[in-house]
Amino acid sequence: MTPADLSRCVVRAVRRAVEDGELPAETVVPERVVVERTRPGGVGDYATPVAFQVAKGVGRPPRGVADVLARLLGEVPGIERADVTGAGFLNFTLGPRSVVGLVRDIRERGTRYGYADGAVETEPFCWERAAGLRQRAVHEAAVRLLRSQGEGYGGPWPGVAPVAKRDGDVVARYGPDAVRWAALTVPARETPHFDDRLLVQGETSELFRVRYAHARSRALLRNAAGLGFDPEVGDVPGAHGLVRTLADYPLVLEAAAHHRAPERLARHLVEVADALLDFQHCVLPKGDEKPSAAHRARLALAEAAGTVLAGGLALLGMDAPERL
């Protein structure tokens, strides 16, 4: 059971509840359910408020709807527990994710890992040139995210706070990519903040860490080739943090598209980058150590992380340099 599978399982559970008569026949089965990481203090690994959406359409208490769905979902292989909290939030605890399956999935799908089956090409795209710099950045990234999930981009758009006049010509001062990053890392209605940290080529800069982590993944591949070995998918014990961020990536794309919130993707890329930078030190052999199956598997995981970083940056409208 993957986090992305979980969303589809919830939809199937709603449909089954309707077919079995546990929910009214007029219940509208959602086409897609947004599942997100449980917030601090919550129960389980993932949560969804779908019961509120379903209950609203049939005039039933969300808690009752959630109880029905939790019982059905608790029978699904790969879901260890399905709990109901509060007024009707569904919470899930999943079984351990296979590193082998995860890395293989990323390698097969490349930078389109996390895209929905109905995804269309995210490029080329050009927003109305008369729009402000911030509006173009936010809307273009949101449209790419929507396209990655196979969705159109009609309907109301959230208001976008412009770059403050006091900041002047930010592109000239910080460069287009740093400005885009600053514009996309805060919610659309908030005014972005610009300062000289955007120019720092070090760990205090989030954009630098994301790009540097991608470059490190590519450097590891080059160095491994120089030592005579290539990545090979295998189990990687002890890499829970990095595996979790990669497994969550499809859910992050789905939620960012649903809420038209590119900042969710930007924040997640920082998590992936930091996890990879912590992990990188155990990838290559040290000293007289010979390359082993463990090194090959770690290299494949690092390669997968770099692929996710490159794909995420592309959705935000930025490139991922091979070297920094």
Rank of each mutant, 00 (worst) to 15 (best):
A82K: 13
A161Y: 14
Q280L: 13
R147G: 10
G86P: 15
D105T: 04
T111L: 04
G118K: 09
G202I: 11
H139M: 14
V272C: 04
E19M: 11
E121C: 11
L313P: 01
T245L: 03
P176V: 07
L315N: 00
H259A: 14
V210L: 06
P156V: 03
D5V: 06
L90F: 10
M1N: 05
L269V: 05
L284Q: 07
L72Q: 06
L94A: 04
R197W: 01
G152C: 13
P187N: 07
Y249H: 07
R15E: 00
R81F: 07
T185F: 03
A304L: 13
G74L: 06
P176N: 08
G228Q: 03
G155E: 01
L102N: 01
D45W: 08
V272Q: 00
E140T: 09
V58L: 02
R222W: 12
L242N: 06
W127D: 00
A116K: 10
A131D: 01
V179A: 10
D278Q: 11
H295V: 12
R323E: 01
A178V: 12
A257R: 12
A182L: 02
G317S: 00
P291S: 12
L221R: 11
G175V: 10
G64A: 07
D195P: 00
R166E: 09
L220R: 10
A161C: 15
P96R: 07
V233M: 11
Y46V: 04
G44E: 06
A300K: 04
H258L: 12
A255F: 02
A137S: 12
A55R: 14
A188M: 03
A261Q: 13
R180I: 09
K56N: 13
V170T: 15
T85I: 12
A13P: 06
G226N: 08
V103I: 01
D230S: 15
M318A: 03
I79F: 01
R216D: 05
G114K: 05
G118S: 05
D117Q: 04
V283E: 01
V186E: 07
R32M: 13
D20T: 14
L284Y: 08
R134V: 01
R8P: 00
C9M: 10
P192H: 05
G86N: 07
K290R: 15
F52I: 14
L269R: 02
G42C: 12
K290E: 08
V76D: 00
Q201D: 05
G78C: 04
G202C: 05
A164T: 15
V35L: 00
A119Q: 06
D235A: 08
R16A: 09
R211V: 14
T307K: 08
V160M: 14
R144V: 10
P124V: 13
V120P: 05
V28F: 14
A183C: 09
G155D: 00
E271G: 13
L90T: 07
